[in-house]
Design a binder for these strands. Sequence first.
DNA 1: CCTCCATTGCAATTTTATTTGCATAGGAGA
DNA 2: TCTCCTATGCAAATAAAATTGCAATGGAGG
Lengths: 293, 293
Amino acid sequence: MDKYDPASQALGDLISRHSTRLTDADTRLLDVLVQDPIRAAMDNGKDVSLRAGVHPASAVRLARRLGFKGYPEFRSFLQANLMVGGEDFESPAARMAARLVRAEEGGLLASVLDSEIAALNNVRNSVSDADIRAFSERLCNSRRIFVFGRGHSSALSALITLRLVRSGYDAFNLGDQVDQLPEALSTFCKYDVLWLLTFRRTSPLVHELRRIAADRGAQTLALTDLHAARIDPAPEHQISISRGKPGESQSLVVPMTIANAVILDLAAIDDGRSIRALREFRSFKATSRLTVD
Amino acid sequence: MDKYDPASQALGDLISRHSTRLTDADTRLLDVLVQDPIRAAMDNGKDVSLRAGVHPASAVRLARRLGFKGYPEFRSFLQANLMVGGEDFESPAARMAARLVRAEEGGLLASVLDSEIAALNNVRNSVSDADIRAFSERLCNSRRIFVFGRGHSSALSALITLRLVRSGYDAFNLGDQVDQLPEALSTFCKYDVLWLLTFRRTSPLVHELRRIAADRGAQTLALTDLHAARIDPAPEHQISISRGKPGESQSLVVPMTIANAVILDLAAIDDGRSIRALREFRSFKATSRLTVD
DNA sequence: CCTCCATTGCAATTTTATTTGCATAGGAGA
DNA sequence: TCTCCTATGCAAATAAAATTGCAATGGAGG
């Protein structure tokens, strides 16, 4: 890595240009600032000066000496410099703006693609591997899995169910059998897992299902967006997707991708169960006359 | 007052824990915070709320709802979180090292996201706006639309059908009614459109459907990947996705995104038909007791 | 249609951060 | 030693941020 931290670099410039006029308190402050540019960019003048062992007034005076109107302006400078360098520091907002510009001059497809890509990138900020693992672990330890989604989400629940079944799990798509819901629900037990999918408005049915699951001790996993997320009592684990800016993807791409990650992780932790089931399914398909796929 | 250990609790956890009590203003704020965690950690409550388009008071209230004593304490939490989870910080070298380590020892979600994003980017090379338009024009001029997909694709065909119906088109998911296939097919006519979805292996059923459509003069649209068997006779229009290297995304994200683009384009060329139908559907949903979504 | 309740914005208030006037300490030069 | 000058801390003043009471809004349920 041939680059220095942009903050200390820019600050270094500033320091050398004013080096003749720097006092003792200034030096101690700058030490602290250079040592930890991140904290420096976040902390207020009081905290910084306390850490430097000088009076808050000295922080203000340093800022003015360096040519800023006051301490807040100095801190803004420090913050701006933190973001300048790394390509991964380009703010999501800036990235988004760039994409929007491109979308305007490009066609419809490009703009849809950009929007989905932006949404996927946002997932990095709101979902962690630990979330994925929490889902897959509960699925792995379950006896049966019930998946439920209405509206657009029903397509997703069907897909998830299908994939889980192919991975060797006893999965059921509750959306397929709304008329037999009572029958299915009456057998809920604490070894079962309920996987809810809900975005935007949350159907009362979802609440009812969650309540029943809670009563019978079944674990509930919820994949939702921030807008719809109001399930009570709270699910054992919930992944909430940030809704993004208006006009940004509200498609199922993001939840589907998260579901895919969960199912993939499941294969990594279930000691070959998924792999074996998939292999078996494949060979069955090859020898059977049924044209499934 | 609940305490959260910054080292182990992510903002995402926090959100799911409290998801039952999140209001609309909360959601908008959290969106802003999640989208740009770095700025979020630096900005004060006023700036954040302005960017979220809500009143500063709402920021305070969110912080309290999440269990902090006030906004400053919440911001401290955000800052601490950045440092812990944030390979973003430290020196650039350390940042890079941390990222490599993470990529090697898992980062499952990141790798899934990367793979999907790469696949979406590939679409730019293999699909054009003209392709999208070819699909949407034929759909627009059709009397009825029959959508068909098997296996994983059946989830996609269900979704496409649902969206077309909501956009005011007479769309039918043939996958839903395999047992009534003959009945449906016998009414095929030249004003109908058959939309086929097939990836990897192509089911004989698909060939049969295409043949029937050809016999009866119905137009056929096919959304496939390059691995799918050639359909004979060739569909009136076909979009073939190049699926990347093995191991790269074979999910439905790409075809779903293309379908979304088609349906979006449809709304752009059908003189308000889609828009009106969607509006009507929305108001119907609002006044009806049915909990569809 | 009305009532009740939750949510939100506004405005007033409190709290915190920043700035400045002033006084003192230490150092250089007459 | 005295004077002048700069740097610093202290404390008061000012500005900004955070909080809270209150009222208006809108939606759910009677």
